[in-house]
Design a protein around this nucleic acid. Structure first.
Lengths: 327, 327
DNA sequence: TCGTCGGGAGACAACGTTGTCATGATGTCG
DNA sequence: CGACATCATGACAACGTTGTCTCCCGACGA
């Protein structure tokens, strides 16, 4: 900026005036400055600007489990869309479901002075965020609630979804229904299990513990779980999958099998309708989730001080055939 | 930091020493300072730090078409992985395939003083980046080359891929092969068309212009294209799809049809193997693409001044059945 | 003619850090 | 016992901006 000022024969402050197009700069002067800027390839340093102005950095932080997972990338996209609309960029990080990495990312984003933080929590303890929140960085939790603090949270109706899945299967005559999901330490998995049990209770069908398998879904672990619930005494005739990865692994595990159980997945996924049979799912609007969270966060950024809010978005059964297999 | 210093009864510089754990601070003093930091919830301002140190901001910029597209989110993930390994974060933006948005994002990222920029270009003119590059921000182009400047570029073997797809189909007896792809203004689409033609020439099969349809793939446009190439005189018996979206739309369009053409897609996608028939594709390693680009960029950040490099990653045919349908 | 007003521009400080240098206290060695 | 290295700390400037205040000058009304 100094160089620009020298080249244009003005003071540094006048250059500042020009780049911020403040009024009360003589057009001729402005032209000289613009020419100098052009010639030197000057670009103002936003970091310094933000420091001086004390305003925010125009950045939102987003922490998810894995930016490469389609579920989270759709979330990311929705957040980005809202952020852009408010003139902000998104800084993203993958926690890899490791609480320490979540914490590290969150604190670093705060050190970078993001205007606000969106977190899909990996851990269950979030006291470390309290100082930051008190210091004025609003935080909104997405898809899962914080562990031990009160804060804005946007969720989907997990329990309602699995309960509906069970009802759907029972309506097609199933009475021995399995539930295969992620580890119960994960909030969504635990909630979906709760809904599964409630659904069973409501429908008056038994909920056999041996038909419930919960652990981190890998291709192998899900295949093993499928084998177990389908070959035990009184085997399952239908399966509820706890999330999109479980569903995909299950579809793969069942692909070779002869007689297949009915299946309802949680989370919609591309091509579900083109599989054979098409996979019924508990669908929810991931974009709406991201948008709601981002809007809530931005309201906080703008100064909304009302008590922490909890938003629960609805889910719906997307019946495509795999759930309609008769018992 | 002032407050911390006051509370700990030391100078602000000593606080700085503690947070950077420089040696030569008396342990007792350090403890007092740490206590004060804890009590006040102090977090150092990385913006100010970066400004003062003149070092980079520890950030890489990544511009893609759409962070929500699985192809780009996998790329994002790979870039993030490498960035983290070098202690850096990733600032991402979606250009939405609009040259002006690409430019706007790139320049803003430069103004934020990213250490380097990864760009999947939307436009074909990149002169606007020259000043930034001269000013020391390295730029690496990913998946598509820059329009009118010389710069590092990491691509996949687009032409080789479609040529191989044609060879694969010819080997199964096909002689009337269609090519459905994105608009030829998109570099990858144009290259794949070139490879398609070369493949036809090499195999000695005709390349009828009416079997080539190129435009922005939507569900409708692809369905229409499929209908056209399959119902014209001398209709196609096989189709090469130009990218993952075209492939998915094609699968959907063909799902209801009776006798289906053979199909080879470009870009692998989840569940391709579980469709009926499983979809053969020209596969390439998106993670490798992102990693190679990020590594190259980081080498530049570290000061590598060698001439611009062009890296072309290999592709391979993933034969799953849909390409083996006999003519 | 004088006082006033407003446009155009610059000097200076400050944002929150850290690099450089200086200081005083303490210990060490010949 | 003096010269000197070492340790612990602080004062100060600087990074690249922008907010505030001030100054100058020409125009305008009384």
């Amino acid at each position: 900026m100094n160089d620009v000022a020298r080249l244009a024969g003005v003071s540094i402050k006048t250059v500042s005036r020009v780049v911020n197009d403040e009024p009360s700069v003589h057009p001729d002067t402005a032209d000289r400055v613009l020419a100098a800027i052009e010639r030197l390839g000057f670009r103002r340093n936003l970091g310094a600007r933000n420091l001086r102005r004390g305003s925010g950095t125009g950045t939102l932080g987003l922490i998810v489990e894995d930016v490469g997972n389609p579920f989270y990338s759709e979330l990311h996209r929705a957040v980005e869309r809202i952020a852009i609309r408010h003139g902000r960029r998104v800084l993203t990080g993958s926690s890899e479901e490791i609480p320490d990495r979540e914490r590290e990312l969150a604190l670093e984003f705060c050190a970078r002075r993001v205007d606000g933080l969106l977190v899909v929590p990996a851990g269950t303890r979030h006291g470390y965020l309290l100082p930051e929140m008190r210091a004025g960085t609003p935080v909104v939790f997405v898809d899962r609630p914080p562990g031990d603090i009160a804060a804005d949270t946007v969720l989907v109706d997990n329990a309602g979804g699995t309960a509906a899945a069970v009802a759907h299967l029972v309506a097609h005559g199933h009475r021995r229904i399995a539930f295969v999901a992620d580890s119960p330490e994960i909030f969504t998995a635990a909630e979906r299990l709760r809904g599964f049990r409630e659904g069973c209770a409501t429908a008056g069908v038994p909920c056999a513990e041996r038909l419930v398998v919960m652990r981190t879904p890998t291709r192998e672990s899900v295949a093993e779980a499928a084998h177990r619930v389908l070959t035990c005494p009184d085997p399952a005739t239908a399966v509820v999958a706890g999330n999109n990865r479980v569903t995909v692994h299950l579809v793969r595990a069942l692909a070779g099998a002869g007689r297949r159980p009915a299946l309802v997945g949680f989370d919609d996924f591309e091509l579900a309708d083109l599989l054979d049979p098409p996979v019924s799912v508990v669908a929810h609007d991931v974009s709406a989730l991201g948008e709601a969270a981002a809007e809530l966060l931005l309201a906080r950024v703008r100064g909304d001080q009302s008590p922490p809010r909890k938003v629960v978005l609805p889910v719906r059964i997307e019946a495509r055939g795999s759930g309609e297999v008769a018992a």
